[in-house]
Design a protein around this nucleic acid. Structure first.
Lengths: 126, 126
DNA sequence: TGTTGACTTAAACCATAGTTTAAGTCGTAT
DNA sequence: ATACGACTTAAACTATGGTTTAAGTCAACA
């Protein structure tokens, strides 16, 4: 079974080591083993969990929410319903945010069109 | 020409008055007039600018970026090219962010499917 | 043997984006 | 007259999500 150092985990996901340490301190990465020298050893499972943490972070779940999720994962199978509920709710929140961004982007596109025209008009004026 | 009070602007966009005051202090809402009592009076144009500020905020442009944009608007027509450039760049950033969220959401959907199956299986087990 | 390079810690520090507080001024409705 | 609601300010405060610093350990390579 392969173990990853913090440097390897950092490189794999392209996030700073300091962020990984911060996540561990916040409880998002529980039960990390250490070697004799006290260095973190990430199992495949923990790398997978880190990946999930990153997906949740990418979709703007707050640290406190990710922590709750991870706590439920550690607690085991009897939290499946709660995790399902949470992920469904989160999905709706993410879809709402994407909608808001997409709608706002339309207005930005209006600006792009207007500025482009203005610049064109000025060129033709010359 | 209609003027809006801060309360009306707040209600129109459903954002706290304190946020509007904060935006003004940060330079996102320049040239706001005042009545004799010192109360803010928002013109139609300024309401429109506030709307743009909100769209940019909805798409996660930092305050400093919005400030730059507003400064260019105030500076006038000779900043059209710079504003166009900025909006184009911002659009690309927003599209990238939406992509990242959409991709991450797929992984969350995998979780939803897995948890749903697990719960179904347990029901059938009974 | 000594000096890199990869790691460790706790604690301080930082940026961002507001929110809250406290004390005060108006205009109007009772 | 007064009390209420809508507004004003500066400054302090908060939350969030890290990043940086300083001092140290350890293994391997020259």
């Amino acid at each position: 079974m392969k173990y990853y150092s913090i440097g390897e985990a950092s490189a794999k996901f392209n996030i700073p080591e300091s962020t990984i340490r911060y996540y561990e301190k916040k409880g998002l990465l529980p039960l990390i083993e250490r070697d004799e020298a006290g260095r973190r050893l990430f199992s495949e499972d923990q790398i997978t969990l880190l990946e999930i943490v990153i997906y949740l972070k990418n979709t703007h779940m707050p640290i406190s929410g990710i922590k709750q999720y991870v706590d439920w994962v550690v607690e085991g199978d009897n939290t499946t319903e709660r995790r399902l509920e949470m992920m469904k709710n989160h999905k709706q929140a993410v879809l709402a945010e994407i909608s808001l961004m997409t709608e706002s982007l339309k207005k930005i596109d209006v600006k792009i069109t207007r500025y482009t025209k203005r610049i064109q008009d000025r060129k033709e004026q010359k």
